[in-house]
Design a protein around this nucleic acid. Structure first.
Length: 279
DNA sequence: AATGGGACCTGCGCGC
DNA sequence: TGCGCGCAGGTCCCAT
């Protein structure tokens, strides 16, 4: 599930590969993922445009186009952007390998590149809009973790009684953190996910602030976490899952104290943590 | 303000 | 072996 580090990785990969490229043809294989405008208009408007710049805000990927409009992509849980060469596509076709069964939208670019937007579960949202900043979702978004000052973060924590883990996942509180990184950050900060935000000591606030940045930064450095569907633009896995301390490790020994990692449900989501290390 | 649920979806893994 | 069911979670939306 692409969270901030995964979307940032896609942005970085895409910048190298398709910045300055032109969209020649668009194939809408499943109109469900096109939220705006009507799929036929979406297709027609995009064809012929260049890709000028790639941006990210929270978990949203934004492609700035040569006419000043924006193509926004929210990956939700199973969205992928995978680049392939046109020649490879032909070869696959010849060997009748079923490739990209979940390709919902295919972007044919110049330079012989094909960009597939895959999405198994059809939750993803693609939009072609005049101004991405006007999206309701964007307006409600909290600060970017890397722009947030420590003083502001402390203030934000003190105002909230909610459990810290669901709060970290609340996009209106802070943008970009999902279920995986909320768990990993809290493990590194040694904070129990059920703790009320305003109960954190000064020292805990400080460590939490630092670990949000450290964990996200390290995850970006390693190309994100390939659990479930996430892959990089190259189709290869991100590397960060091998650094996971608690996420998806229920019953397995904590790397620090060897106690079995615990899983509980919080706000309807699975939370992984170490009872002994996280107080 | 905070919390809890359902909805949207599909594939997987589990139990029988 | 096969079938049905629950689960996975990002976001929105409604109810309390």
């Amino acid at each position: 599930m692409p969270e901030l580090p995964e979307v940032q990785t896609i942005k970085n990969d895409l910048e190298k590969a398709v910045c300055g490229a032109k969209i020649i043809r668009v194939l809408v294989n499943n109109p469900k993922v096109i939220r705006q405008p009507a799929p036929a208009v979406f297709k027609r408007s995009l064809e012929g445009l260049g890709i000028k710049r790639i941006l990210r805000r929270g978990k949203l990927l934004i492609l700035e186009l040569s006419n000043g409009k924006f193509l926004t992509i929210h990956f939700k849980m199973t969205g992928q952007l995978v680049l392939r060469k046109a020649a490879t596509a032909k070869k696959n076709l010849e060997s009748s390998q079923p490739v990209n069964i979940n390709s919902r939208v295919t972007f044919y670019l110049n330079r012989g590149m094909i960009l597939d937007f895959n999405d198994q579960r059809l939750f993803a949202e693609l939009r072609l809009i005049n101004d991405w900043q006007e999206l309701a979702f964007i307006q409600k978004l909290g600060p970017e973790p890397f722009d947030l000052t420590y003083a502001d973060f402390k203030d934000m924590l003190l105002k909230r009684k909610t459990a810290i883990k669901p709060l970290l996942m609340d996009q209106a509180f802070i943008a970009g953190i999902g279920n995986i990184y909320a768990a990993e950050i809290l493990f590194h900060a040694k904070i129990n996910p059920g703790r009320s935000a305003q109960s954190l000591t000064q020292e805990e606030q400080d460590v939490l602030y630092k670990q949000i940045q450290a964990v996200l930064k390290s995850a970006i450095k390693h190309g994100g976490s390939s659990v479930d569907d996430y892959v990089r633009v190259s189709g290869k896995n991100g590397d960060y899952a091998r650094f996971h301390q608690v996420y998806g490790r229920e019953g397995k020994p904590c790397f620090v104290c060897a106690q079995p990692v615990k899983r509980i449900a919080q706000a309807g989501r699975g939370t992984y943590f170490c009872l002994k290390c996280q107080v």
